[in-house]
């Protein structure tokens, strides 16, 4: 508990000095999102206890931990998806570019456009591939002409590495694609609204190893263009794709630091036990 408090206080000071925090250092790119002392309650049950994490532009941040440790819950606080659960209550400060996202004047709809999300199970709309991508830009009015929209669709699909596979069949249903393609379609759909942060909630858990490899490759390519936060069960995946790793256990943030440090030289006993497979 003392260690946790230490890490909390040190990361808090990082916002002040930007240098002393273990997780954030020069070369990590601009600070995108900060969370301070976040608690989440589902009714009486506390799901997240006092979590403080910083998300930077140039790093992929991975949340790892055993099932039910609250990593997905915490991720969903970052774009206020927890708002849809009536009994969920979030306290603490979460900021995007310095703005408190839980402030009353914050527009949730705009927030979710700025902080995109990719879900565990690929969930394309039962519409054409084109409409899947074009939906976001349409509702946000990002394209004024048909050409603009076509361009957005093409660039989004290209960035998601799907353009080559689907360019001849943009009018086919998005649900007719394979699982891996569907997930990349969902990533393209998130990219299409030009977000600043992309949250990925176990994006590969429903995919085979080849599709997983493609998604991981894609995450590498997207790094730097978007701040990426990924929740994963798969520790190897966290090690492969992320530069910062946060280990959650029973709703608390046990350890947060540079991925290589977490995996080779964790400071916490629990982290070591988890990554060596002693439990989880």
């Amino acid at each position: 508990m003392t260690e946790l408090l230490d890490s909390t206080s040190s990361s808090e000071s990082s916002t002040m000095t930007e240098s002393s925090a273990p997780a954030i250092s020069a070369g990590d790119g601009p600070l995108k999102m900060t969370t301070r002392n976040v608690d989440v309650f589902y009714g009486d049950k506390q799901a997240i206890n006092d979590v403080s994490i910083d998300v930077t532009m140039d790093n992929v941040t991975a949340f790892i931990g055993p099932s039910g440790c609250g990593k997905s819950t915490f991720l969903r606080c970052l774009n206020r998806m927890n708002d849809t659960i009536p009994i969920a209550k979030v306290t603490g400060d979460i900021t995007l570019e310095g703005e408190d996202i839980y402030a009353p004047k914050m527009d949730v709809v705009q927030l979710r456009a700025r902080v995109g999300m990719v879900f565990q199970k690929p969930n394309p709309f039962p519409k054409s591939i084109y409409d899947n991508i074009a939906y976001g830009p349409r509702i946000h009015g990002l394209a004024s002409t048909k050409e603009d929209l076509d361009n957005i669709v093409e660039t989004s699909l290209q960035r998601a590495g799907l353009w080559g596979e689907v360019q001849d069949r943009l009018q086919d249903s998005g649900t007719a694609l394979s699982g891996g393609q569907q997930q990349r379609l969902c990533i393209a759909r998130a990219i299409a609204v030009d977000p600043e942060v992309i949250l990925m909630d176990e994006p590969c858990s429903a995919l085979d190893p080849i599709a997983t490899a493609k998604i991981e490759e894609l995450i590498h390519e997207l790094r730097g263009k978007y701040a990426i936060v990924i929740v994963t069960h798969n520790m190897q995946q966290a090690a492969r794709v992320s530069q910062r790793t946060a280990f959650f256990h029973l709703g608390t943030l046990v350890e947060y630091g540079v991925t290589s440090d977490i995996f080779t030289n964790p400071t916490e006993e629990k982290t070591r036990d988890y990554i060596t497979g002693r439990y989880g």
Binding site: N79, M81, T84, V109, Q110, L111, R112, A113, R114, G116, M117, V118, F119, K121, N123, P124, F125, P126, Y135, G136, I139, H140, C186, R189, A190, A192, V193
Partner: peptide, 27 residues
């Protein structure tokens, strides 16, 4: 209507009404 469709639409910044009329109602 699967909740994943609602989440997908909310996740890219559709308002509640857009979710309902663009996705839930047609399905």
């Amino acid at each position: 209507v699967p909740p994943s469709i609602r989440e997908a639409a909310l996740g890219i910044g559709a308002s509640q009404m857009q979710v309902v009329f663009h996705h839930v109602l047609p399905l």
